[in-house]
Amino acid sequence: MAARLDRALQKANISSAKAAGWLDVSEHDVQFWRRGITVPPFAAFNRIAKALDIDPHWLCTGQAERAQAAN
């Protein structure tokens, strides 16, 4: 997860400080997430994904979200 988050933030040219401001967390929290020292709380995954316009499932797992089977 850390590598995907770091790559997505770099691609969007978003600093840890800016991301921290969006998420109302410390810059150190975001830096720790980017380095894989800690992981963001679940609610932050969705906010990060929305802000970066990326799939939250991919951010969490590295896999594209599977389409739900029709019943």
Rank of each mutant, 00 (worst) to 15 (best):
L5M: 00
L5A: 02
L5S: 00
D6M: 04
D6P: 00
R7D: 01
R7T: 02
R7I: 02
R7S: 02
R7Q: 04
A8K: 07
Q10S: 02
Q10N: 06
K11A: 12
K11D: 06
K11G: 06
A12P: 05
N13A: 13
N13F: 06
N13D: 12
S15A: 03
S16P: 02
A17T: 08
K18W: 01
K18I: 01
K18G: 00
A19L: 02
A19H: 02
A19R: 00
A20D: 03
A20W: 04
G21T: 07
G21Y: 08
G21E: 13
G21P: 03
W22V: 03
W22Q: 09
W22A: 12
L23K: 07
V25M: 03
V25H: 03
S26C: 00
S26H: 07
S26F: 03
E27H: 10
D29M: 09
V30P: 10
F32S: 13
F32E: 14
W33Q: 08
W33M: 11
W33D: 03
R34E: 09
R34C: 10
R34T: 05
R35K: 10
G36L: 15
G36F: 15
I37K: 14
I37T: 15
I37Y: 15
T38C: 11
T38Q: 11
V39C: 03
P40L: 05
P41R: 08
P41A: 09
F42T: 14
F42S: 13
A43P: 13
A43G: 11
A44H: 11
F45W: 07
R47P: 00
R47E: 11
R47Y: 06
I48V: 10
I48H: 10
